[in-house]
Nucleic acid binder design. Structure first.
Length: 483
RNA sequence: UCCUUCUUAGCUCAGCUGGUUAGAGCACAUGACUGUUAAUCAUGGGGUCGCUGGUUCAAGUCCAGCAGAGGGAGCCA
């Protein structure tokens, strides 16, 4: 059995070539039946669907199949035949069953029934074995591939930006320090502060919060680049939309402005969602059903108006709304919830930072489609963003998605040395730490733009999962680094 | 970090204004049944009621602290 070549379940289920001997290897989902015939639902992760193995009990002893329990790893050889039952078109009439690894039914935590996502999160080492999570992670792979394909097709180069960096320059959040110094007794300088010159890198280092600055360096030579890698934020964020370790896609394009940037982001989102619609139909159907099921227990007002696949098609078939921050403020100021004082933060004047309630109003109530907001007040945005001629806004843009909020944040970058330098001083960043970034504005600087896409946020949208901890295999968040 | 709800069997949950031996469904074990689809039916085993302390004759139930989880908010992607 161990030597025998086996066929993926996915292949067998779509096979029209029956009455031939086949071998499958996978994990048992359920076994049921009686003393005359037993049915084993086998899954090998190649598809959401199981293949049904039929064991005629005149050919097998009870003892032989005793270890074939939910969770056990087995190999089966038999004849692929048309099924006489209703649930499947083909099945395997077993001639030989081999148990690779048992799963004690008293102890194996997964049952052939619904488990709460919270419980499965506690057994993340086994949750791949469930239909929901195998579907989610197959889609995660497909989405990764679709993103690389999109950029490759458009002539972008993938840049591997460093994970350990010496700059926390972006100010994008709290950093995770990387050090080999003895935490209990670090070397000290004369003034009593830690002497990082004795550390591994000879300076303070941390895990990256963004690959953007490095991507810019690449774009100013290769014209079109993107990064796709893990980023780390030590924020004490306890929400269903934040992780301490998450994956980010950051394209950067030379000779491009804020409008090109918005078009690129929209094209990318439409393209990758289309790819998933075309290539992950079975998994999407399952997740759509799961979502509908879950929403049944919610009050009608909170249910989403579209089911998952319709929601994805809606994004690929409709234009995103583009409006300036200033226009958004006008709409919000005149909106019903603002006049009736239903917002927790009322919009009174230009310059206010938008809260999630405002973003949700625009996306879910007012426009009912993805919204791109651009030209934000400089005061509420990062130092590297292109300062507009009006003297008060920067060429920044955010893409807001229904149910998820901000999925993309980007901008045209400030390419003029003097303006960038002045901004760095204003914000109080140490110029020395960014000498290399500033230098690119002195040697062949050009207008350029890029954005950051939170991969897990996109995963949430595509899979309909509502907690970000369920779209990454092993989530990292405050008080948890298990597995 | 803030607000709020929750923590009872392997899982999902019930347990009233504190009062005998803490319940159900599923799962598991045993048995029955000639093709099941989360199979069905019968029987059975399974609990330090999150942890620590307090109030009380008496605490799963009331109070306090701690820990963890869910939802919302902030920070953001």
């Amino acid at each position: 059995m161990q030597d025998r070549k086996h066929t993926p379940v996915k292949e067998l289920l779509t096979s029209t070539e029956v009455d031939r001997e086949v071998t499958v290897k996978g994990w048992v989902r359920t076994k049921r039946g009686n003393s005359f015939v037993q049915f084993i639902a086998l899954n090998d992760g190649s598809t959401i669907n199981n293949i049904q193995v039929v064991a005629d009990m005149t050919k097998f002893s009870e003892e032989e199949l005793k270890q074939v329990t939910t969770g056990a790893a087995v190999g089966v050889t038999g004849t692929l035949v048309k099924s006489t039952g209703a649930g499947q078109t083909v099945e395997i009439q077993a001639t030989q069953v081999f148990v690779y690894g048992v799963a004690d039914p008293e102890k194996f935590p997964l049952q052939p029934k619904k488990h709460s996502l919270e419980f499965l999160r506690e057994i993340a080492h086994l949750r791949f074995r469930t239909s929901t999570f195998s579907a989610v992670f197959r889609i995660r792979h497909a989405l990764t591939f679709a993103i690389h394909k999109f950029f490759n097709d458009r002539g972008f180069y993938n840049i591997h930006s460093p994970i350990i960096t010496g700059s926390d320059a972006e100010g994008a959040g709290e950093i995770f320090r990387v050090t080999l110094l003895n935490a209990k007794n670090p070397p000290l300088k004369e003034d009593g502060t830690v002497d990082y010159s004795q550390d591994f890198f000879g300076k303070e280092t941390n895990l990256t919060v963004s690959g953007q600055l490095e991507a810019e360096l690449g774009a100013l030579a290769l014209s079109k680049v993107y990064t796709f890698g893990p980023t780390f934020r030590a924020e004490n964020s306890n929400t269903s939309r934040h992780l301490a370790e998450f994956w980010m896609i950051e394209p950067e394009v030379a000779f491009a402005d804020i409008n090109d940037n918005m078009t690129l982001a929209q094209d990318m989102l439409v393209s990758v969602v289309k790819y998933i619609l075309e290539n992950c139909e079975d998994d999407l159907k399952f997740l759509s059903g799961r979502l509908l099921d879950e929403e049944k227990s919610k009050p009608e007002a909170e249910r989403s108006p579209l089911e998952l696949i319709e929601k994805l098609k809606f994004v690929t078939e409709n234009d995103f709304v583009r409006l300036t921050y200033t226009e958004a403020i006008e709409i919000l100021r005149e909106s019903k919830p603002n006049k009736k004082k239903q917002f927790n933060y009322l919009i009174n004047e230009w310059g206010a930072d938008l809260q999630s309630e405002h973003e949700r109003f625009l996306v879910e109530k007012h426009f009912k489609k993805p919204v791109i907001l651009y030209n934000y007040p400089a005061a509420i945005k990062a130092f590297y963003m292109k300062q507009n001629d009006d003297g008060k806004t920067v060429a920044a843009m955010d893409i807001l998605f229904p149910g998820i909020g901000e999925i993309v944040g980007g901008s045209q970058r400030e390419e003029v040395y003097e303006k960038l330098h002045r901004r760095i001083t204003e914000v109080g960043i140490e110029e020395k730490s960014l000498w290399w970034y500033l230098e690119t504005r002195q040697f062949g600087t050009v207008p350029h733009a890029g954005f950051g896409l939170g991969f897990e946020r996109l995963m949430m949208f595509v899979t309909g999962m509502t907690n970000i901890r369920d779209v990454i295999p092993f989530p990292r968040f405050p008080k948890n680094a298990e597995f």
